[in-house]
Design a protein around this nucleic acid. Sequence first.
DNA 1: TAAATTATGTGATTCAAGTCACAGCCCGGC
DNA 2: GCCGGGCTGTGACTTGAATCACATAATTTA
Lengths: 202, 202
Amino acid sequence: MFTFDYKIFTLFMIDLLRNNIEDYVKITDEDFFAIRQHFDQMDFRKGDFIIRAQDSVSAIYFIQSGLVKLSYWGQDGKEHIASFAMENWWETDFNAFYLQRKSSCTLQCLEATTAYCLSLKNYQNLCARFPYMTGYFLDKSIRGHIANQNRILSLLTLSPKQKYEQFLQLYPSLVQRIPKTILAAYLGLSRETLSRLYRRKK
Amino acid sequence: MFTFDYKIFTLFMIDLLRNNIEDYVKITDEDFFAIRQHFDQMDFRKGDFIIRAQDSVSAIYFIQSGLVKLSYWGQDGKEHIASFAMENWWETDFNAFYLQRKSSCTLQCLEATTAYCLSLKNYQNLCARFPYMTGYFLDKSIRGHIANQNRILSLLTLSPKQKYEQFLQLYPSLVQRIPKTILAAYLGLSRETLSRLYRRKK
DNA sequence: TAAATTATGTGATTCAAGTCACAGCCCGGC
DNA sequence: GCCGGGCTGTGACTTGAATCACATAATTTA
């Protein structure tokens, strides 16, 4: 009887989150049901803010659908992009979330977005109740660390053209979804330089 | 009798590693003794390579004393610094270690260095036998992630002068220990520009 | 100790990317 | 449909950092 409930449940939730966890470790229906209850679903429209500067950040977000940008405004008053997150990615301002500080960033939707929201308390409960979830988050964290490392090396070593081409190669599907102005702010280029890149050689 | 052994042991090992773990979770002498046996101590002279490009990387290193640099050579043939690690820091080429690939980086000692070496197998054993160690590594990983995020934002938003000043502020003790040429390669500046920074205003 | 090597400071020059300015375009709302 | 705002392309100009070139200082090593 409960089994039936799970079936209904999983039918409705063709759930990226479960897939994402199961890429790391296989789990039972019962476990996933319990895990899922630690999350709140939230829906945002294009342009909505998930986190505003100066907010305290009490959750991590698993993006079920849509696309968000994590951005930071320098003293120069310009927007810079720390990262993007699309379906199947985790995102938050970890600095604010994990160290319990006010956010210095903004998390905003580039598209209508559905996110599963995991509060700090629920995150801790989850890891306590399902120890393998700690391992899961560690895996995600290390992969994020590796991605950041690569990004740093790209910023240090690549020419504007190479940066753009590497982004194209790494995230081909994102290039169409992100305004060039924003992409430029991610790559560390001016909008104009990025635009001119299409014609130039080097 | 065994208790006595632990005492001797901990007497010899005024051990940064234990302190580092205990910043996250308190552990017993017995546990630390067992944990410690997963590590091999290695000593390096200044200039020695811990990892060379093209190596496969089978361990993470906890720096007990000394200073190392993780660097990458761009196609331009120039050295770029991914990160430094000094006493009390963990370091490796995580890309190569965690994803089991050939290293594209080099890990080299800027000073004579003593490191505790944790092989992938021992790392897995350690987490399996002491589940709280997974939490410990997760904590380290998230903090590393946050540091990388900040570094990315610095590279994107700061002027050369500001980059240097921020480094001074974050790691005052490191500035004296690192050759300016290497520091420039970390900050993403030319050696000359860094040198000139001391006089210029902006 | 002296020689060799590596680190550092500084001037002159170059050039790639930023900035400013403007025009056309696309998209969404009324 | 029309209007307004954000997005994008492109030219002209400016500039700050890289590059090149050299001299001096500091370290290593033989």
